[in-house]
Amino acid sequence: MNAVVEPAIVTRADAGSGIVLVCEHASNHFPDVYDGLGLSEEVRNSHAAWDPGALGVAERLSEKLDAPLIAGAVSRLIYDCNRPPDAPGAMLTRSEAYDIPGNIGLSADEKAARVAQIYDPFHATVSAVLDKAKARVMITVHSFTRVYLGQSRAVEIGVLHDSDARLADAMLKTAGDHIALVTQRNAPYGPGDGVMHTLKKHGISRGIPHVMLEVRNDLIETPEAREGMATQLAAWLHHALSQLGAEHARI
């Protein structure tokens, strides 16, 4: 598998707000070299393969916040760029209710090849964009399902963080001014679920405020819904950032 795979797409690379957006699970694209991992079209289009609606919200946010956006360009089932190479979830053999045939029995060399083809260049791109933008804030954008393994979820917006809660705290403090939705801290996922890799690798390591936003995907099914969600999130983020001090109030 030596074919060239493009792991990331950058838009608005020259935006100057000091905010950088990341959408790791933006795509359900399966490059031909992976032969669809042996999955049906239904699975390749399901939430198991990507975060439906997340890219549309992130793109609208990029415009409203004047922020560069790094979006994953291949399905997370090939490699989940929000997981380090040693994580069990990096190349899942089973996701939700689906077996992933093309990931079963991967050799160490095959796994290393995916790390080199997808993970390494994706995160190198994130680092390069953060450097170029002189980033003062990083925001990652995801979506989640209303029902997971038969269990309904009441949360509609999740505000996720690891050890640095500065931006999450400010957002949760101001949520009622901007979002008439069920908003929770570290839900439907939290640090114990292994979903903080990008935040830790790029946000905590740089000491910049950061947050992971999870939006329930039934709320962003249409272009109009994604536009409306991004409008609300942008105003909310600006308000929250203004609570962090003069430096971030200017963002």
Rank of each mutant, 00 (worst) to 15 (best):
131 D>I: 00
127 S>C: 03
124 A>G: 14
160 L>Q: 05
142 H>K: 10
140 T>F: 09
135 A>D: 02
152 S>F: 13
146 R>C: 06
122 F>Y: 15
152 S>A: 15
142 H>S: 04
160 L>V: 09
125 T>S: 08
121 P>D: 02
125 T>G: 11
127 S>L: 06
148 Y>F: 14
152 S>M: 13
133 A>V: 08
125 T>A: 12
153 R>N: 00
118 I>K: 11
163 S>D: 14
143 S>A: 06
145 T>S: 10
139 I>V: 15
120 D>W: 04
134 K>G: 15
126 V>F: 06
122 F>Q: 05
126 V>S: 07
154 A>L: 13
138 M>R: 01
146 R>L: 10
132 K>F: 00
138 M>Y: 03
139 I>N: 02
133 A>D: 07
149 L>A: 15
141 V>D: 06
159 V>N: 02
132 K>D: 03
133 A>W: 08
163 S>V: 13
160 L>F: 05
127 S>I: 03
137 V>T: 04
139 I>P: 04
137 V>E: 01
129 V>W: 02
159 V>Y: 03
138 M>E: 06
144 F>R: 01
149 L>Q: 15
128 A>N: 10
163 S>G: 13
148 Y>G: 00
156 E>P: 07
117 Q>T: 11
127 S>T: 08
150 G>V: 05
137 V>C: 05
150 G>P: 07
126 V>Q: 05
139 I>L: 11
126 V>N: 08
123 H>I: 01
132 K>R: 12
137 V>S: 00
148 Y>L: 15
135 A>M: 07
152 S>Q: 13
123 H>T: 04
163 S>M: 13
137 V>L: 04
120 D>F: 08
121 P>M: 02
141 V>L: 11
160 L>Y: 01
118 I>H: 09
119 Y>I: 06
136 R>V: 07
121 P>S: 08
119 Y>V: 03
131 D>K: 04
144 F>D: 04
163 S>Q: 14
152 S>L: 14
155 V>A: 12
143 S>F: 06
142 H>L: 10
147 V>C: 07
138 M>F: 08
157 I>K: 03
139 I>T: 07
133 A>G: 07
131 D>S: 09
152 S>W: 12
157 I>H: 02
139 I>D: 04
148 Y>C: 10
119 Y>T: 07
120 D>M: 12
152 S>H: 14
136 R>L: 12
121 P>T: 04
142 H>T: 01
121 P>A: 07
160 L>W: 01
144 F>L: 04
123 H>Y: 01
130 L>A: 00
136 R>M: 11
141 V>R: 06
158 G>T: 06
117 Q>W: 10
157 I>R: 06
153 R>K: 09
121 P>F: 02
155 V>E: 09
127 S>M: 06
